[in-house]
Design a protein around this nucleic acid. Structure first.
Length: 925
RNA sequence: GGGAGUUUAGCUCAGCUGGUUCAGAGCAUCUGCCUUACAAGCAGAGGGUCACUGGUUCGAACCCAGUAACUCCCA
C-alpha cells in the first residue's frame, strides 16, 4: 500500500463498501449464533438524508458493527414508510404540472402514478445511508406498502375490529382547506400570530321582547359583550357560556340572546371551562368549529352540526347571510366585522396574540372540522404497553423518558386512524349503498333492505368476503341467495379513506419478518424481539408506544429490549435544523469534505443520549483530525524494519500498554452497556491519541538513525506494536469503519484471506490488567510532565539533556522506568539517591522527590516562595482532613472505607509537609 | 392550563450510592517548539460563586423546598 501524507477518505470508502457488499458481510440469515437485531426507523420514502438521520443511523451502525464483532448474528433491517400525506402531496403536485388531478385520473390510475413516482424518486435516502457506511442487510429492504406489508396492516385492522377495538365516530379533525384533507396533529405547526380580538354585542332577550342596542334604561343590560377572534363564525353559534361562579353574570343564567345580524336565538349555559378574566368572561360556543366548543356542545346537548364552512374554506348556505355565502373565511371575517360595526354590534377591537395551527404541507390555516373518522380504542392496549416499560422489559434510555411515557399512557386518547387520502392501505370497510328494494326472484316479493346505520357498514378483508357477508344479511331478510349476491356485489363500496401511516409502521418490527401473516415462521422466531431501537423522543408516543402495543397484540411480547432516544440535531445557536432556516449542512457535503469516518466521529462526539445536540461542523473537523492521527501513527510503524540482532528494550512499555489497553477495553464495554456512546468514543479517542500515540509510541519508537532508510527496531517490540495496532483497529472499527478496514488490509499485518476483514474481526477479550504497573507509570508520566514544565519555564530545549536524581520514599523502584524517563525526558544521567540534593531544582511526584541539578544556582527567594505556597496549600488541606477525622459524628456516620481514605490523605499530606519543611530548613542554611 | 426536563469553564458535555488531591473531559484560547509519524502536530498553561435563595447533613454540584431562565410533550 502506498502511504500518502494524509488520509484520503475518497480513495477508500466506496472501495470497501462494495467489498463488504460483495462478500455479504451485512447479510444475515438465522443460524445457531445469538441474534442481534435492529430495525431501522423507516424514513419517509420521499425523504432525503438530514442531520437527524445521520446521527440516528450512525448510532445504529455503531451498535450493529460492534455486535457483529462480538460474534453475534447481526441483522439491521432497512426500509422506508409510505408517508401518505407527504407523498400524496408530492404526487398531486407533479400531476398538477401535467394537467391532471387526483379525481380526473381516478383512484387506480393515481395509485399507479404514485407507485411509479416512488420507484423513480423514492428511497434516495437509503442510497445516501450507504455513503455513511450503514451496514444494513439490504436484501431485507422493506417498504410499508409492499403487498405483504399491506396485508399485515389489513389483517391488523380486522383483528382489532374483532376484538371490538375499532369504531367509527364523528370527531373534530384538523382540516387543511387547501389540501382538502384532514391532517394529523403532528402535521399541524402551531405558531404565535398577531390577531385581533373582536368584542361583539349580543342582545339579551328579556320579558319576551328583544332589546335593541343602545337601550340603557333597563337594570339588566340590553346586551352582553363576547370576545372572539373569529367573528365570521357567529352564524354557527349554539350558545353563550359563562362561568357559573362569575358574579358579573349571575343575571344571565337561564337567559337567551339573539345572534347579531341574525334572527336566531341561543341560550346561555354555564360551565367552569370558561376563564372569568379572559376577554369579557363570556364565551360564544360554536360546536362545529372548535374542539373545546364541541366538547361543551356534547355536554349540554347543543346542535353539533351547524357547520358553516365548505371543504375549501368558503362559507356555505348555513352561514345564512346571503352576501357572505361563498366567500372565503378570511374575507368573510373582514366583511362581517364591517357589518357588525355598521349596525352597532361591534363594541371594540383589541390586538391579541395567540397560537394558530398551520398545515405543514400547504401552510394554510388549519380549520377544526367535524367529520366521520375511524378510531382505534387505546385504553385496553395501553395498559400492557405501559407495563412492559414499568417492569423493565423495555428499557428507555435515558430513563427520564419513563415518566413521560407513563403520563401519556395513562392519559391516552383514542387513535384516529383514517386519512382522507388515497396513498396508503384503503380501509377494509364496506358500505351498502342501494336506494331501492330488490325483488326475491323466487317468491316475487319485494324485500325491504332499509338496513339501519350500523348494518350498512362492515369490515371484510376483500370485496368478495364483504359481498358474502352482506348477502347473508339479505338472505336473512328474505332475499334469494343469487339475487342477494349480485345485489351486494353491485351496491357495496369500499371506504375511500386510507389508514394512517403509523398504522403501518407500528407493525414494523413484526411485519419486516412477516410475523403478522406467518406468526411462526423461522425468521420472526429467530429475530424477534429485536434488541435495540434507536429513534427520536418526538415519536416516543406516535411510534414507540404503538409498536409495543402491536407487539403485545400479535406476539404477547414487546418488540425490542432497549430504546435509545437520541436528541434533536440543532445548530450551534440551538435552533432546530430546518429547510426554511437553511441552517442545516448538507450531510453528503460533509461526508465529501470530512470523510464518512470523520463525520461519524464528529456526530457522536456531540451526542449525549436524550439531549439535543448543538451541532457544529467543527466536530467533523475534529473527527477527521482524529482519523488522520491514526493514519499517521500507522505511517510511523510502517517506516520501521526489524533488526534481529537487537534485543527488546521496551518490555515495561509493552506490558504497560497491554494493561492500559485492557483497562480501556473494560471501560468501553461498560459505556456501551449503558449506551454512553459518546463516552465510549471519547475513551477510544484518548486510548489511541494519548495512550497509544503520545505515550506508547514515543516510548518505543527507535531513536533516529542517520543514513538508514528504514528505522531499525527489535523484533519483539515490532511484533507487539503491530498486535496492539490491530487490536486498536478492532476497537475503533464501529466508529470509523472505513479507515480501519483500509489499514487492516495493509501488508504490515501479513497476508490476509479474502474474508479476513476488520468488519468481521472479533473484538479482543479483556486480558490482564496490572494495576500497580498502571499506577506507577501514571507517576512516571507526572515526573515527565514536571520535567517538561521545568524545561518550559527555564527555557531549556528538549535537545539539551538534563540530569535527574530520585529519592524514592514510596518504595517504587524507579530503576525499571529509567529507560522511559531518560528517553522521553532526555535525561543523560539518572541516579537513585538516598539523600536530597541541595541546590538542585526539585519537584515531587506523590511523596517521591526528584532533583535536577543545573549549572546555574537556583534562586533561593523564588524557591522559598514556591515552597511556602505549597506548604500553605497542604496545611489548609491537612486542616480540613484533620477536622473531619476529629469530628465524632463523621467518625460515627461515615463508612469505614471513607475513613480509610481520609486517613491516607492525612498521612500523605503529612509526609509531603515534612519534606517541604525540610527543604525550607535547608534553604535557610 | 397540565406534565416532563435542562441550567457545571468561552463552547459542547461528564460528574453513577452525598465522602479522595473533586470541581473534570473534549474543543476553543494563550505560551513555547518547524523535536526526523503527524503544524490536521508536539509540550505546557490559564479558564468555574456548579442558575439563584433557603433547608437537611459531620459533609451538598449531587438530597429537599422555593425562585428565575430556557427546552420539549400534551391540551
Amino acid at each position: 500500500m502506498s502511504i500518502s501524507k494524509t488520509y484520503l477518505p475518497k480513495q477508500t470508502e466506496d472501495k470497501w463498501y462494495s467489498y463488504w457488499l460483495k462478500h455479504e458481510f451485512f447479510k444475515s440469515v438465522p443460524d445457531e449464533r445469538e441474534p442481534y437485531t435492529i430495525v431501522i426507523p423507516p424514513p419517509n420514502v420521499t425523504g432525503v438524508l438530514h442531520m437527524g438521520h445521520m446521527l440516528n443511523n450512525t448510532i445504529q451502525d455503531v451498535l450493529v458493527r460492534r455486535a457483529r464483532m462480538k460474534g453475534k448474528n447481526a441483522c439491521w433491517v432497512p426500509g422506508t414508510d409510505h408517508a401518505s400525506i407527504a407523498t400524496e402531496a408530492k404526487v398531486v403536485a407533479m400531476l398538477k404540472e401535467q394537467g391532471h388531478t387526483k379525481e380526473s385520473l381516478g383512484r387506480e390510475k393515481f395509485l399507479e402514478k404514485a407507485m411509479e413516482w416512488k420507484e423513480k424518486y423514492g428511497g434516495i435516502i437509503l442510497e445516501q445511508l450507504k455513503k455513511l457506511g450503514a451496514s444494513c442487510d439490504w436484501d431485507r429492504t422493506k417498504f410499508t406498502m409492499d403487498p405483504e406489508m399491506s396485508e399485515a396492516v389489513i389483517d391488523t385492522f380486522i383483528k382489532l375490529n374483532k376484538k371490538g377495538l375499532i369504531y367509527r365516530g364523528v370527531r373534530m379533525v384538523n382540516w387543511d382547506p387547501q389540501g382538502k384533507t384532514a391532517v394529523s396533529d403532528e402535521e399541524v405547526i402551531r405558531k404565535e400570530v398577531n390577531q385581533k380580538l373582536y368584542y361583539i354585542r349580543y342582545p339579551i332577550l328579556g320579558d319576551g321582547t328583544v332589546k335593541v342596542p343602545n337601550h340603557v334604561a333597563s337594570p339588566i343590560p340590553a346586551f352582553i359583550v363576547v370576545a372572539t377572534t373569529r367573528p365570521e363564525t357567529i352564524m354557527a353559534d349554539e350558545a353563550i357560556c359563562v362561568n357559573p361562579n362569575d358574579p358579573n353574570y349571575f343575571y344571565l343564567h337561564g337567559k337567551r340572546v339573539r345572534i347579531p345580524l341574525l334572527d336566531r336565538y341561543i341560550g346561555v349555559i354555564t360551565d367552569d371551562y370558561v376563564t372569568i378574566d379572559f376577554g369579557t368572561g363570556c364565551l360564544k360556543v360554536t360546536p362545529a368549529h372548535d374542539q373545546n366548543d364541541y366538547e361543551l356542545g356534547l355536554k349540554y346537548g347543543l346542535d353539533l352540526n351547524r357547520d358553516i364552512l365548505n371543504d375549501d374554506g368558503t362559507l356555505n348556505e348555513m352561514a345564512v347571510i346571503p352576501e357572505l355565502i361563498g366567500m372565503d373565511r378570511f374575507d368573510a371575517r373582514k366583511r362581517i366585522v364591517k357589518m357588525l360595526d355598521e349596525q352597532g354590534y361591534l363594541d371594540k377591537v383589541e390586538e391579541y396574540k395567540s397560537q394558530v395551527g398551520f398545515s405543514e404541507r400547504t401552510n394554510a390555516v388549519i380549520e377544526p372540522k367535524l367529520s366521520m373518522q375511524w378510531f382505534c380504542k387505546m385504553g385496553e392496549m395501553a395498559k400492557p404497553a405501559l407495563d412492559y416499560v414499568i417492569n423493565g422489559d423495555v428499557k428507555l434510555i435515558p430513563e427520564k423518558f419513563v415518566n413521560t411515557y407513563r403520563h401519556w399512557m395513562e392519559n391516552v386518547r383514542d387513535w384516529n386512524i383514517s386519512r382522507q387520502l388515497w396513498w396508503g392501505q384503503q380501509i377494509p370497510a364496506w358500505y351498502y349503498r342501494a336506494n331501492y328494494s330488490p325483488i326475491n326472484r323466487i317468491t316475487g316479493e319485494t324485500i325491504n333492505l332499509l338496513l339501519d346505520q350500523n348494518e350498512r357498514v362492515l369490515i371484510a378483508k376483500t370485496k368478495k368476503e364483504a359481498v358474502k357477508c352482506f348477502a347473508e344479511i339479505f338472505v336473512k331478510r328474505g332475499l334469494d341467495e343469487p339475487t342477494a349476491l349480485t345485489h351486494a356485489d353491485k351496491y357495496i363500496e369500499q371506504d375511500p379513506d386510507v389508514l394512517d401511516t403509523w398504522f403501518s409502521s407500528w407493525l414494523w418490527p413484526i411485519s419486516v419478518f412477516d410475523g403478522v401473516r406467518n406468526p411462526n415462521n423461522p425468521e420472526i422466531n429467530y429475530y424477534y424481539p429485536t434488541n435495540d431501537l434507536v429513534t427520536a423522543p418526538e415519536i416516543l408516543f406516535f411510534w414507540v408506544a404503538r409498536m409495543i402495543m402491536a407487539g403485545d397484540l400479535w406476539r404477547q411480547e414487546a418488540p425490542f429490549k432497549n430504546v435509545y432516544l437520541t436528541g434533536i440535531v440543532r445548530d450551534k445557536l440551538g435552533r432546530k435544523m430546518s429547510k426554511s432556516l437553511g441552517n442545516s449542512p448538507d450531510p453528503l457535503g460533509l461526508i465529501e469534505q470530512y470523510g464518512a469516518d470523520g463525520v461519524r466521529v464528529g456526530m457522536l462526539l456531540c451526542s449525549p443520549a436524550g439531549n439535543d445536540l448543538m451541532f457544529d461542523e467543527s466536530y467533523c473537523k475534529q473527527g477527521s483530525g482524529f482519523v488522520n492521527k491514526i493514519w499517521n501513527a500507522f505511517n510511523l510503524i510502517k517506516g520501521w524494519e526489524v533488526d534481529e540482532s537487537l534485543s527488546n528494550p521496551n518490555e515495561v512499555s509493552i506490558k504497560w500498554f497491554g494493561s492500559r489497553f485492557n483497562q480501556a477495553l473494560g471501560e468501553i464495554e461498560e459505556q456501551f452497556k449503558q449506551f454512553r456512546l459518546s463516552e465510549a468514543l471519547m475513551s477510544t479517542y484518548k486510548l489511541i491519541w494519548d495512550d497509544f500515540c503520545a505515550w506508547y509510541l514515543e516510548m518505543i519508537k527507535p531513536v533516529y538513525q542517520h543514513g538508514v532508510e528504514k528505522q531499525r527496531i527489535d523484533a519483539e517490540t515490532y511484533k507487539a506494536t503491530i498486535a496492539f495496532f490491530e487490536d486498536i483497529l478492532k476497537v475503533l472499527h464501529p466508529f470509523a469503519p472505513f479507515i480501519t478496514e483500509e489499514l487492516w488490509h495493509d501488508e504490515l499485518f501479513g497476508e490476509r484471506g479474502e474474508k479476513d476483514c476488520c468488519i468481521v474481526a472479533q473484538l479482543p477479550n479483556i486480558g490482564e490488567i496490572n494495576t500497580q504497573l498502571l499506577n506507577e507509570v501514571e507517576l512516571v508520566q507526572i515526573v515527565l510532565t514536571q520535567i517538561r514544565n521545568i524545561r518550559n519555564t527555564k527555557q531549556i530545549l528538549q535537545k539539551d539533556a538534563l540530569k535527574l536524581a530520585v529519592k524514592s520514599n514510596s518504595g517504587i523502584n524507579y530503576q525499571q522506568y529509567q529507560a522511559i524517563i531518560a528517553k522521553l525526558g532526555n535525561i543523560s544521567e539518572f541516579t537513585l539517591v538516598d539523600d536530597k540534593l541541595n541546590g538542585a531544582l526539585n519537584f515531587m511526584a506523590s511523596t517521591d522527590e526528584f532533583y535536577i541539578p543545573l549549572s546555574e544556582n537556583l534562586d533561593p527567594v523564588a524557591e522559598r516562595a514556591r515552597l511556602e505556597k505549597e506548604k500553605e496549600y497542604l496545611f489548609g488541606f491537612l486542616k480540613s482532613v484533620t477536622a473531619k477525622l476529629n469530628n465524632e459524628r463523621f467518625m460515627a456516620n461515615a463508612k469505614p472505607e471513607i475513613i480509610d481514605v481520609e486517613l491516607k490523605k492525612k498521612a500523605d499530606a503529612e509526609a509531603k509537609l515534612r519534606i517541604i519543611e525540610q527543604n525550607l530548613d535547608d534553604l535557610a542554611d
